[in-house]
Simulated assay, not measured.
Amino acid sequence: DPALENAIVDAISHLRAFNEQLLERASDWQMEIENGLTAGEKITPISSVGLFVPSGKASYPSVAYQLGVPAVVAGVKNICLVVPPVPGGNGEVDPAVLVVCRLLGITNVFRINGPAGIAALGFGTETIPKVRKVVGPGSPAVTLAQVEMQRHGLATMMLLGPTESLVLADHTAHVGRLASDLLIEAEHGTDSSVVFVTNSEALIDAVEEELQIQLADLPPVRAEACRASLGPNGGAVLVASLNEAVDVANMYAPEHCQVAVDAQYEDQVVDAIINAGEILIGQHTPFSAGNFLIGCPASLPTSGFAHVSSGITVDTFLKRTAIARANEPALRRMSESIITLADHEGFPAHSNAIRRRFQA
C-alpha cells in the first residue's frame, strides 16, 4: 500500500529529527573540578537491543518505528526485532512491520510469540542472538517475562502496561473534539483507562452526551473497549479549579496527557504538570497525532511510572561512562581526605594505595 508506506516514511522522518536533536544534546563533556583534576562523561550506544513489537490484539507497525528509530539513531550495532504473527492469520507477520524494518535497515527480524520472544532475546538461541536490553509494550504475560528475565541479566527500561490517558479541559474546550480525543486511547482495549478532569460540570454533561453519539460510530469491539476505559477503568473528575486539576493529573501521572484550556492559562497549566509521559497542548494536538506521527516518544511509562521515568527515545539506547584524570599535585591535595574516608570505612588497601605514593 503506497499510502501506508508514505505515512510510515513521514513518521520516521519526524522521529529521526526528534531523536537526532536529543543525540546532539547528549554529547561528551568534561570540566575541571579543581586545579589538575578533570572529570566528565563519554556517551556511547549500548551494544545490542531487542525490540518487541506486539501483535496480540492487532498489528502495530507504529510501535516498530517508535522503538526502531531511536535505536538506529543511537548507533546500536546489533538490533533484533521480534514480532508475533498477526492475529487471525496463517502465521504471517504484518508486511507493514517488515517495511519499517527495511526502511530502518533492521535485518534481524524474528517471528515469535511474546514471552518466548523475550526469553529468546535474553538467553539467545541457535537463530536468535542474545541481547543486553529489551524494550517494547505487550500483554501482562510479556511484561512478566521482561520482569523475570531481569533475574538473568536482561535489562529493560520500564514496564509498558495497558494504555491510559488524561484530558484536562475547561469550559473553552470544543465538546466534539473533547469526546473524540477521549475515545482515542479508550479504544485500545477493555483494560485501558481514560480520565477526564475539568472544573466545569456543564462540560462533563455535554461531553457525556456527545460520547454516546460518537460511540455509535465505532465497531462493537472498539465501543466495548471505550465503555470500559471511560467507565469502570476511568471516568470524569470534577474539580474546583485548574490548580486542583493539575494536582489530580500529577497524582495520576498519566501515560498520555492533553491540556485543552483557555490559551491564557495554557503555559501555567503545562508548567505545573510534572508527572506525565507526554503533554499535548491544545485541541489541534490529539493523542492520535502523538501516537503515529509527531515524533515525540509514544512508548511511554504507564501505571504511575511517569512519576519516575520517561518515554523511549535515543537516550534509552545510550549509556554514560564517567571519565576522570588527576595529576600528582591534585592527588596529593586530595590524599588526606581519601585516607580519612577509607580508614573510616575500613578499607586499608584503599588508603595504603595513597599513603605509599606519598611516603617520604
Rank of each mutant, 00 (worst) to 15 (best):
E5F: 00
A11D: 06
S13M: 10
H14A: 14
A17R: 15
F18D: 00
S27C: 08
D28S: 11
W29R: 14
Q30F: 09
M31K: 10
E34H: 06
E34S: 15
G36P: 06
T38R: 11
I46N: 08
V49W: 00
V49R: 04
K57V: 13
K57S: 15
Y60Q: 08
Y60F: 15
S62V: 11
V63Y: 07
A64S: 12
L67I: 11
P70S: 13
V73Y: 06
A74K: 09
V83S: 13
P84L: 03
P84D: 07
P85H: 10
P95S: 14
A96E: 07
R102H: 13
R102L: 01
L104H: 02
L104Q: 01
P115Q: 11
G117F: 09
G122I: 11
F123Q: 09
G124A: 04
T125C: 10
T127V: 09
I128R: 00
K133L: 14
V135D: 01
P137F: 12
V142N: 05
T143M: 11
G161E: 12
L168P: 00
T172A: 13
H174E: 13
D181F: 04
A186D: 08
G189R: 02
V194Y: 02
F196A: 02
F196S: 01
N199Y: 04
E201S: 07
E201W: 04
I204N: 06
D205I: 05
L215S: 06
C226Q: 06
C226M: 05
G234P: 00
A236C: 11
A240K: 10
E244L: 07
E244W: 06
E244T: 07
A245N: 02
D247A: 15
A249Q: 02
M251D: 13
M251G: 03
M251Y: 08
P254W: 04
P254S: 11
E255H: 10
H256Y: 15
D262H: 14
D262Y: 05
Q264N: 12
D267R: 15
Q268L: 10
V269S: 01
D271S: 14
H284F: 04
F287M: 04
S288Q: 10
A289C: 01
G290I: 02
I294R: 03
G295W: 04
T302M: 09
H307Q: 13
S309W: 04
V314E: 07
T316S: 15
K319D: 10
K319P: 03
R320T: 14
R320H: 15
T321I: 12
R325H: 11
N327R: 05
N327Q: 10
E328L: 12
D343W: 07
E345K: 08
G346E: 03
P348V: 07
S351H: 11
